[in-house]
Simulated assay, not measured.
Amino acid sequence: MKDKTIDYALRATWQAVAKMYNEEASKFQSTMATGFALLSIDPDEGTPSTSLGPRMGMEATSLSRTLKSMEEKGLIVRKPNPEDGRGVLIYLTDFGKEKRAVSKDVVVTFNETIRECVSESQLNSFFEVTEIINDLISSRKIFDQKEVITN
């Protein structure tokens, strides 16, 4: 533990989680990105395409590829936003709703398994630490506050 850096632990853990999710998704001819998108789209009201990227933490280019693939597979349909003529709403098809249920089961299983193996106190500490890290990054308190030393 002494030699591990915080960023290494975060990166290695996320890579392991992503690999696990992608392996599970492949059993259903899907990907983690598709599953995450399915879970991020409101199953009843649809979701504006412009809010999906920020909600998922995805760049527009990656999101566009994911949505195009989902549309080709019949998981989603795009419709004009009646409240904003320039915008598009993304809706799940019936098939998309079925796949969304599978994705939800996978996420619930992951979370239940972790909760069985980690105490509530440990989990609360984990969330506190991740919140502090995110706050430090978003408030630019890690690098922007430090002076650049020149020789």
Score class of each variant (00 low, 15 high):
Lys27Pro: 05
Phe28Pro: 14
Phe28Tyr: 05
Phe28Cys: 15
Phe28Lys: 11
Phe28Met: 12
Phe28Val: 09
Gln29Leu: 13
Gln29Thr: 15
Ser30Pro: 11
Thr31Pro: 00
Thr31Ser: 06
Met32Lys: 01
Gly35Leu: 00
Phe36Thr: 09
Ala37Leu: 03
Leu38Cys: 01
Leu39Arg: 04
Leu39Pro: 00
Pro43Ser: 03
Pro43Met: 02
Asp44Ala: 08
Glu45Trp: 06
Glu45Phe: 13
Gly46Phe: 03
Gly46Ala: 08
Pro48Asp: 09
Pro48Ala: 12
Pro48Cys: 14
Ser49Asn: 14
Ser49Tyr: 14
Ser51Thr: 07
Ser51Asp: 13
Leu52Glu: 03
Gly53Val: 01
Gly53Asn: 09
Pro54Trp: 05
Pro54Met: 01
Pro54Arg: 05
Arg55Phe: 02
Arg55Cys: 00
Arg55Asn: 08
Arg55Thr: 09
Arg55Gly: 00
Arg55Met: 03
Met58Val: 01
Glu59Leu: 11
Glu59Val: 15
Glu59Asn: 14
Ala60Val: 14
Ala60Lys: 07
Thr61Val: 09
Thr61Cys: 14
Ser62Ile: 08
Ser62Cys: 13
Ser64Gly: 12
Ser64Arg: 12
Ser64Ala: 10
Ser64Gln: 06
Arg65Thr: 08
Thr66Pro: 00
Leu67Ile: 05
Lys68Cys: 11
Lys68His: 13
Lys68Pro: 05
Ser69Pro: 11
Ser69Glu: 15
Ser69Val: 14
Met70Pro: 00
Glu71Arg: 09
Glu71His: 14
Glu71Ala: 15
Glu72Asp: 06
Glu72His: 11
Lys73Val: 04
Lys73His: 13
Lys73Pro: 15
Gly74Val: 12
Leu75Asp: 02
Leu75Asn: 03
Ile76Trp: 04
Ile76His: 01
Ile76Thr: 05
Ile76Cys: 04
Val77Arg: 06
Arg78Gly: 08
Arg78Met: 11
Arg78Ala: 15
Lys79Arg: 12
Lys79His: 11
Pro80Ile: 04
Pro80Trp: 04
Asn81Lys: 01
Asn81Ser: 05
Asn81Met: 03
Pro82Ile: 03
Pro82Trp: 04
Pro82Gln: 06
Glu83Asn: 13
Glu83Met: 10
Glu83Leu: 15
Glu83Tyr: 07
Gly85Thr: 13
Arg86Pro: 03
Arg86Val: 08
Arg86Leu: 13
Arg86Glu: 06
Gly87Leu: 13
Gly87Met: 07
Val88Gln: 10
Leu89Tyr: 06
Leu89Lys: 07
Leu89Glu: 02
Ile90Leu: 04
Ile90Trp: 00
Leu92Ala: 01
Leu92Cys: 00
Leu92Met: 01
Thr93Asp: 02
Asp94Tyr: 14
Phe95Leu: 08
Phe95Cys: 08
Gly96Val: 12
Lys97Gly: 04
Glu98Tyr: 11
Glu98Thr: 06
Glu98Pro: 10
Lys99Ala: 01
Lys99Arg: 07
Arg100Ile: 07
Arg100Phe: 02
Ala101Asn: 13
Ala101Trp: 08
Val102Leu: 08
Ser103Leu: 03
Asp105Lys: 08
Asp105Ser: 12
Asp105Asn: 08
Asp105Met: 13
Val106Glu: 00
Val106Cys: 02
Val107Ala: 12
Val107Cys: 10
Val107Gln: 08
Val108Gly: 11
Val108His: 07
Thr109Asp: 09
Thr109Cys: 09
Phe110Glu: 11
Asn111Tyr: 15
Asn111Glu: 10
Asn111Arg: 09
Glu112Cys: 09
Glu112Lys: 14
